[in-house]
Design a protein around this nucleic acid. Structure first.
Lengths: 212, 212
DNA sequence: AATTAAAGAATGAACGGTCATTCATAAATT
DNA sequence: AATTTATGAATGACCGTTCATTCTTTAATT
């Protein structure tokens, strides 16, 4: 019997069950049932329940990073790259909805119950964005004062939250592609070097930055 | 003995415990201990564990909405309003870190185990943003083609994700105020009507701008 | 090629620990 | 002393994990 056969079956079942019930409410027996496998069999392939979740993080995000990177590396223009990132992220969520739900929820939760685990894959994914922004800055296309470390989180957060609520509400006022386009448009014209000095917002900046 | 006394004590204890352990890993006895109350006492004030969480959602978000609205209503310029929203949101997270952690995590998770519960308070909070954007559009300050329903999620997501990661990482490369400023700047110059036709992004823009 | 033995996979009932919740009792308040 | 409020030990459901047993595949022997 092929080893990987059941491994994959269990992972796919777990993604569905976790997506539906959340990690804590999901029972091993649910996963076993969906994978058409005995409860005990799961422990031949995974150490425990957490281990299944971590494996999902590692293996599945890994695949996504690979896909997105390949797609982005075909481009040279940072503006296009950012737009493609937005679109690919949203498409991924649409096509792999269950996985997206698991990642969105448990990624946030995971710090609480898996203290030791540092999700390097997720960091790697975010860094796709900051690298694009730095490239744009080197090319003098994006403003210098944009902090890549902030912008990457902002960009990701904007996409992910929009997608999350899109998944939740049954009546979609917008398509996921429209949302991707809107967000990348806002961000791009938000970080591009302006033709004139219009980048400053005409407001009283009472709040001083403490940072350097 | 004042009724509200213990009610409040339990809520405040629960916020701390939920923040630290997450809803599922938190034990009632933990909350009781922190509130200096017997386990059973909690059930005199709340129906069950979920009920505590829901009460946190309702009461605490309610307070926040009130504060933010009051602060924003002092302004007329939608640009300033958006900037204030960003700053207030971030300040709130800094000042009420435990509450912020609970909201960030459990808000996402909650759909899974509390099927029936619709978080109207959260929707109300988001709508502060869409209302600002609509106002800006009416005043011809913000672009017409920006969808308020998308932009509000994007704005909130950008702020919240940035704040989330700021909470997680101990070494802050940026202050929370810097992040707020960065994000509101990006969004503002992203949605403002451009002084000239520089809103065009050099990509296939099927969606035309209707604004002047 | 048929038979037997050994190894590897899979099973699912049973175990055991963990809490959320209850409730008989006690303390405080009126 | 009646009533309200609080206590915390006891209850019992729940479910992750284990493991004795069965089934399947592979290898060895006749």
């Amino acid at each position: 019997m092929r080893h990987s056969d059941k491994h994959e079956k269990i992972i796919q079942a777990a993604i569905k069950v976790f997506a539906k019930k959340g990690f804590f409410s999901a029972r091993i027996s649910d996963i076993a049932q969906k994978a058409k496998v005995a409860d005990g069999t799961i422990y031949l392939y995974f150490n425990n329940k957490y281990d299944i979740l971590i494996t999902i993080f590692e293996e599945e995000i890994g695949k996504i990073i690979k896909e997105v990177k390949e797609r982005i590396d075909q481009e040279d223009d940072p503006r296009k790259m950012l737009e493609i990132f937005a679109m690919e992220h949203m498409r991924m969520i649409k096509d792999r909805r269950n996985l997206a739900e698991v990642l969105q929820m448990e990624l946030r939760q995971s710090n609480k119950f898996m203290r030791e685990y540092r999700n390097t894959k997720f960091i790697e994914y975010l860094d796709i964005v900051s690298r694009i922004i730095r490239k744009g800055q080197e090319m003098k296309i994006f403003r210098e004062d944009v902090m890549p470390g902030v912008a990457k989180r902002a960009m990701f957060g904007a996409l992910d939250e929009t997608a999350r609520l899109w998944i939740l509400s049954p009546d979609h006022r917008y398509t996921i592609e429209e949302a991707a386009k809107q967000i990348s448009t806002i961000f791009l014209s938000g970080i591009e070097v302006k033709p004139r000095g219009s980048g400053r917002i005409g407001l009283d900046n009472r709040q001083d930055f403490q940072g350097s």
